[in-house]
Each structure stands twice: as C-alpha cells, then as structure tokens.
Simulated scan of single mutants.
Amino acid sequence: MKYQVIHTTNYIYQSAASLCHNIMIQIPKDWPFQKVESFEYSISPEPSYSIDRIDFFENKYLYFSIEKSHSKLTVTAKSKVELSSPAWVTVNPKMTQPWEEVHAWLHSTDAMNDIRQFYLESKHVDFVDGIKEYALQSFTPGRPIMEAMIELNTRIFTDFTFTPGFTDISTPMSTVFETKKGVCQDFAHFSLACLRSIGLAARYVSGYIETLPPPGKPKLVGADASHAWIALYIPGLDWVEFDATNNLLVDDKHIRVAVGRDFADVTPLKGIVYSVGKQTMKVSVDVRRPEEVIL
C-alpha cells in the first residue's frame, strides 16, 4: 500500500519573534515493512541554520533556527511511503510465549538495555492506582503474551471513549483513567502504563493513519491528523504494534515516523521562541493514496 502524507504546521505570533530554535520530528524512515520513497520539507521564513540529525532512539529529525524577525512560521513536511504487512499479522497469538516468561527474560541480564528501558515509567506514563490491576485482567497467569495484549487492546477500545478536546498533553493519566475519555495519544499512554506496570517493555509510536470519509462523502484535504499507537516487545517477533484507538493489530495502513518512551520524545514540532504575547498554532495533515492525490 502506498501513501502520500503532507503535514503542515502554522504558528502565528501576537508579537513578532526575533529568534526561534526548533526540532522537527516528522521524517519517516525505512523499516522492514515500510519503505520511504521520498521526503521533502519547506520552512517559511527560510531558516538561518538547519541540520539533519538522529536522536537516541534512532529517529531522524531536523534542527533549525530562524534568526530574524518573523510573525508567522510555516513548516510543511511531505512524504511518500510504501507499506507492506508485518510478519506478526500471520502469527497465531495463542502460540506466543506466556507473558511471565517474557517478563522474566526482560528482567534478566539476557535482555539488552535498549529493550529494557521501555518497561520503566516516563514523563507521560506513570503507574497510577489501579492500572496494574486493570492490566492483569487480561494478563492472567500463563496466558500467551500476544493473546493477552489483543484482549487488553480491545478492552481499552471498548471501555474508553474517543473525545477530541477533552484532554491535552498536560492531562494527568489518573484523569484519563477515571473518565475513560481521551484521544489516540491518551490511549497509547494508557496502554503503555498498563504494560509497563506489569514489567513488560512497550514503546510509543507516532505517525499517521489514513482516515476515510463517510460513504458517499468526499475526503477533505487536511482532515487527517497525527496518530499514536504502541509497540510491545515479544521475543522472536521483535516490536509488535497495537492500536487501541481503532482496536487493531497494526497492519499496512499505519505510517511510522518515530518511536520513544512517550509523546515527549517524539513531539512533531517543538522549540523555543523569543517573543511576547500569545501564539496560535494550526496543524493540517493529509494522508492519501497516490491515485487520490489532488494536483
């Protein structure tokens, strides 16, 4: 499956900014089941300095600075990728290891630290009261890890209500758990908290997913959004991805951009601005198959 993604971010400053430093994490990379055919970006006003780098989690990112007065910043990233089905979609979940065996391996010296770091709490993933008990309803003694994860994914999808605008990045995990409301970012963080609270390694995945309009309705340009889901480490299968927002074992419709401990590690665009007054931000994301691209 091939996709084109256009991600545009506009910042408008109440008072002109004299200087800004920014990090853009919107650059997809190749995976065994994802091939990046092209990537390009544009920034207005033109940066005074920019450089491509790779972070601790091996995500690609762009650092840039604008060292002149500007009242608006526009960043557009355009990607073309080809996706294929990951190997895990053909696996029988009942044939995977009992989750306790995976836990024991992760907490031994046999597991690499690059994997083990993902069973710890992080900035947006804390083990609030009751979360371990919630996870253990699915992760019962001796249960195959992938089978248990699929049930947990389904329970979160069923128990929680997708509610745009109810939360923001500062909303505590306890509020999300108590109200059972949020968006994909919240559901990903909650999934991670469940898994890490029982000692399993799981990481945050940021990217995009195609959203389809109602039958008979045209697809609106810019109506898509960034998406978030999680990956659970299963020995022999590597990082297996699950999307609680859509109750999916991820296949060939999720476009990966970056991975980290949580949203703080993979914020699409962040930085420091030297200005006074308020600023407004507008984000537009458009995900299309090549045959749907509007020229």
Rank of each mutant, 00 (worst) to 15 (best):
15 S>C: 10
187 F>C: 01
233 Y>W: 07
188 A>I: 04
242 F>H: 04
138 S>H: 05
129 D>Q: 15
164 P>G: 10
97 Q>V: 04
199 G>N: 07
188 A>L: 12
263 F>C: 06
99 W>V: 04
146 M>V: 01
37 E>Q: 15
162 F>G: 07
147 E>H: 08
159 D>C: 01
126 D>V: 11
20 C>H: 01
99 W>Y: 08
120 L>D: 13
67 E>Q: 14
27 I>M: 12
36 V>Q: 08
291 E>V: 05
250 V>F: 00
206 S>V: 04
43 I>A: 00
246 N>V: 08
150 I>D: 10
233 Y>H: 11
111 A>E: 02
5 V>R: 01
144 P>D: 06
29 K>I: 07
12 I>H: 11
196 R>E: 12
71 S>M: 10
229 W>I: 09
285 V>K: 00
25 I>R: 15
204 Y>N: 05
153 N>S: 09
27 I>S: 07
191 S>Q: 05
256 R>P: 08
273 V>E: 02
229 W>H: 03
258 A>F: 08
187 F>Y: 03
213 P>T: 12
124 H>N: 15
93 P>Q: 09
277 G>P: 01
208 Y>G: 01
1 M>P: 14
104 A>M: 09
108 S>I: 07
264 A>C: 07
87 A>D: 14
279 Q>W: 01
6 I>H: 09
171 T>Q: 10
222 G>F: 12
9 T>F: 06
136 L>P: 01
213 P>D: 05
210 E>K: 15
201 A>E: 02
250 V>Q: 06
126 D>A: 11
263 F>P: 04
60 K>T: 15
160 F>Y: 11
257 V>Y: 05
71 S>A: 13
93 P>C: 13
207 G>M: 03
179 T>N: 14
179 T>S: 13
200 L>F: 04
11 Y>S: 06
256 R>D: 02
134 Y>P: 06
160 F>I: 01
125 V>S: 00
183 V>F: 03
128 V>A: 07
178 E>L: 09
80 K>P: 06
222 G>H: 08
60 K>H: 14
212 L>A: 11
30 D>I: 02
41 Y>R: 03
217 K>M: 14
102 V>L: 05
239 W>M: 03
52 D>Q: 11
163 T>F: 11
198 I>G: 03
82 E>I: 00
209 I>F: 11
267 T>R: 04
206 S>A: 14
286 D>M: 00
63 Y>A: 12
8 T>N: 12
109 T>R: 14
269 L>H: 00
98 P>Q: 14
53 R>W: 02
293 V>R: 05
261 R>M: 07
109 T>L: 08
99 W>K: 01
54 I>G: 03
128 V>L: 07
146 M>C: 00
68 K>I: 05
137 Q>S: 07
